[in-house]
Design a protein around this nucleic acid. Structure first.
Length: 491
RNA sequence: GGUCCUGUGGCCGAGUGGCUAGGCUGAGCUCUGCAAAAGCUCCUACAGCGGUUCGAAUCCGCUCGGGACCUCCA
């Protein structure tokens, strides 16, 4: 099964058969969040996409080392190599130590990821925890002749690098085009080339986050942390590197250059990029101000939101779109997903009580193959979801005695549903805990018994009132042929 | 301005040179005291204009529209 997987590789702009460096093992690195602010939904989409990818790799039996960093230093505010460190700026604003900011938003990020049911990565290294590694890497790049120092700041020499390696490879651009499209710099320039970027930056006197280095007090450049940490934990060349598409042109391009210049090896075999999340057709971004926070999405406390949407409804919504397509948020689409997801969960519950037949009305192995084919084709979750809904129809049809299923069919259906819905897509039944409450279960049994008597007396006004009143508590009563059943709806 | 992606039915969203994606919504029917759920049926698309082809929504060109990156952002 492991040799069936095909991945779209940004590097070659084509789908390629996935072959790990070490059989049965995968090294996966994903650019994590910059923790100077609340994570917004766009970030979450990327991390949820890679969580699904991580989960599927695990499902296929790969031993995966999943590294996702926390950027807690070095990101600049404003234009190239100028401006304040984001953490310092925010710290001044909030009158806090930079590391207080880092701590606050790291905890917030973890909390949101937990709500989205994302598995924690194997290693979550921080930039500030790897200053030595970054300095060593800068030293090596200097020693290899691909960088130069100017007044305490070290720059990467892009033009020199490009003579030996294709710098714009990841975005399919050549150096001439890149230079032609670079903005005019503001006069001052210690940099030799327009595209040169900083590996190490000299700290201004007021700069709070700073470390000693061979070039004086300073802090690491924007891209070096990922190069340093990925090679430390996954090796000089590893299998998969992922991140949002917006990182492709600059961050990842520079990462490749740094790693190649340092280690004389291409760092990554498969580059994967997730697409952007949009709101009303416009990219949700920190600076555009058109985003809402995960918390606001869950509670519905935002002008753009008609109501709150549970984390799993949102996650399922994301799974209905391929990770390389843009995903547009709208109340209508979210509500459609919410209902569809409820239907999927209901079918999984129905599956538990299905009575096996001697004959089979379906070709279960065809369905199983279709699920794996979908996921093996570059993690095509929308197709997977479509296949799962085919199975929902099968289950419901079996439930009313229309489609016969053998015990084997039912067993495979259970396995498929649980594997793909819960293990791979990382969804969970949010109301399961409540329904498992033994006291409530007992109470409801009594209530339904009483209602049964009332109905037997044909006092429908009373039985309907009971049903309506329970409904106000989000408890839904359904009178099926055999008996009345109850369930708790979300929110 | 440069590079690139994209345009699918009421909404969301896959996909393939010729065969029903799927979800949500709407309409009808079955079931039901009613409701809900479920089942069945219907509404059935591929921006426009050319071209290639026996045949294109799927390939090519142009036009129009949308978006991304080139500047911090997942």
């Amino acid at each position: 099964m492991q040799d069936q997987l095909v991945i779209y590789n940004t590097l070659t702009r084509s789908k390629e058969k996935f072959t790990p460096i070490n059989k049965g093992m995968v090294g996966l690195y994903v650019c994590g969040p910059t923790v100077y602010n609340d994570v917004h939904l766009g970030n979450c989409r990327t991390f949820i996409s890679f969580d699904m990818i991580y989960r599927y790799l695990l499902h296929l039996g790969f031993k995966v080392r999943y590294v996702r960093n926390i950027t807690d230093a070095g990101h600049l505010e404003g234009d190239r190599d100028e401006g304040d460190d984001k953490f310092s700026k925010k710290a001044k604003l909030e009158q806090l130590e930079p590391m207080e900011i880092v701590q606050k938003y790291t905890l917030g990020f973890h909390d949101v990821m937990r709500q989205f049911n994302a598995l924690p990565p194997s290693i979550e290294p921080t930039a500030t925890g790897h200053i030595c590694e970054q300095i060593e890497m800068v030293k090596q790049i200097l020693a290899n002749g691909y960088a130069y120092e100017a007044d305490g700041t070290v720059y990467f020499d892009v033009e020199k690098y490009n003579k030996e390696f294709p710098y714009g490879q990841l975005t399919n651009r050549n150096l001439e085009d890149l230079i032609a499209n670079t903005r005019e710099l503001h006069g001052q320039d210690e940099k030799k080339g327009r595209l040169d970027f900083a590996l190490w930056i000299k700290a201004k006197p007021e700069h709070l986050m700073r470390w000693p280095s061979p070039w004086g007090w300073g802090f690491p450049g924007w891209h070096i942390e990922c190069s340093a940490m990925s090679s430390k934990y996954l090796g000089d060349t590893f299998d998969i590197h992922g991140g949002g598409m917006d990182l492709q042109a600059t961050h990842h391009t520079n990462e490749i250059a740094q790693s190649q210049a340092c280690n004389h090896k291409a760092p990554v075999n498969y580059w994967m990029h997730t697409n952007m999340l949009t709101v009303n057709g416009v990219r949700m971004s920190k600076t555009a101000g058109n985003g809402f926070l995960p918390g606001e999405l869950f509670t519905g406390n935002h002008p753009l939101l008609e109501k709150g949407y549970s984390p799993m409804a949102v996650r399922f919504f994301m799974m209905q779109t391929h990770y390389r397509s843009t995903l547009d948020f709208s109340n209508e689409a979210l509500q459609a997903s919410e209902k569809g997801y409820a239907r999927l969960l209901a079918a999984i519950k129905t599956l538990e009580n299905l009575k096996p037949s001697d004959a089979s009305g379906i070709f279960i192995n065809d369905h199983k193959k279709a699920c794996y084919d979908a996921m093996n084709d570059d993690f095509n979750t929308p197709i997977l979801v479509a296949e799962l809904f085919e199975l929902v129809s099968v289950i419901n049809s079996a439930n009313i005695g229309k489609t016969p299923l053998t015990a084997n069919d039912i067993s495979i259906l259970k396995e498929l549903m649980h594997s793909f819905v819960f293990d791979v897509m990382g969804l969970k039944d949010e109301v399961a805990n409540v329904a498992d409450n033994k006291v409530l279960d007992g109470v409801m049994k009594i209530v339904l018994d009483i209602r049964k008597d009332i109905k037997a007396r044909k006092d429908f006004a009373a039985s309907d009132k009971l049903r309506d009143d329970l409904n106000k508590l989000n408890i839904t009563i359904k009178d099926t042929k055999e008996a009345a059943v109850w369930s708790i709806s979300q929110q």
